[in-house]
């Protein structure tokens, strides 16, 4: 029995009426905005009750000077269905204030979120509460800035050069 995506998304919306405060659709892709406080509870239910067992992508967008709140976490989930015939996709967004850029980690729910969240931590400096291994992933461990923030200039090479020179002087370990 195939289920269409509108009815699934409709039932998610009716069950989490108080947590979802905005919904929109663009090019047949539905986005739900979820309140930060109830995000973890929402995700647990998304996996257990609505069978979104597959996490596709996690990323963030920095809307510096364009929008308040500044950061937006973007999650993309996939539901296979019992016979792998439904293939429903849903995009969840959580807005984060500049003053408090922490969010609950979903790695305990979907283990595939581990590296994806680490990349967001690396590139945007967003902290994940309850993440089992919160380290930088692509940039060097002692690198300070977060490159995908909009206030980071693309020509900015200085910090990595400094840390490299420091290692040259003090020796690699």
């Amino acid at each position: 029995m195939s289920v269409d995506s509108d009815s699934v998304i409709g039932s998610i919306r009716s069950q989490f009426e108080s947590s979802i405060y905005k919904t929109y659709s663009f090019r047949d892709e539905t986005t739900l905005f979820v309140k930060k406080e109830s995000f973890l509870k929402f995700c647990r239910s998304l996996k257990q009750d609505f069978k979104f067992t597959y996490v596709i992508d996690i990323t963030a967008v920095d809307y510096l000077d364009i929008r308040v709140p500044r950061y937006e976490m973007v999650y993309l989930f996939h539901r296979f269905g019992d016979d792998y015939d439904e293939n429903i996709r849903i995009r969840i967004k959580v807005e984060l204030e500049d003053s408090d850029i922490t969010i609950d980690s979903i790695t305990p729910i979907w283990s595939g979120a581990n590296w994806l969240e680490r990349e967001v931590l690396d590139m945007f400096g967003i902290e994940f509460r309850g993440h089992p291994d919160p380290r930088r992933i692509l940039m060097p461990e002692d690198y300070k800035p977060h490159p995908l923030r909009k206030d980071f200039d693309v020509r900015n090479r200085q910090p990595s050069k400094e840390s490299f020179e420091k290692e040259l002087k003090e020796g690699f370990e």
Partner: peptide
């Protein structure tokens, strides 16, 4: 990982 990181996502924003 990260030894081949070129920042393609950042470059493409510009």
């Amino acid at each position: 990982i990260g030894y081949l990181h070129r920042g393609i996502e950042k470059l493409c924003e510009n």
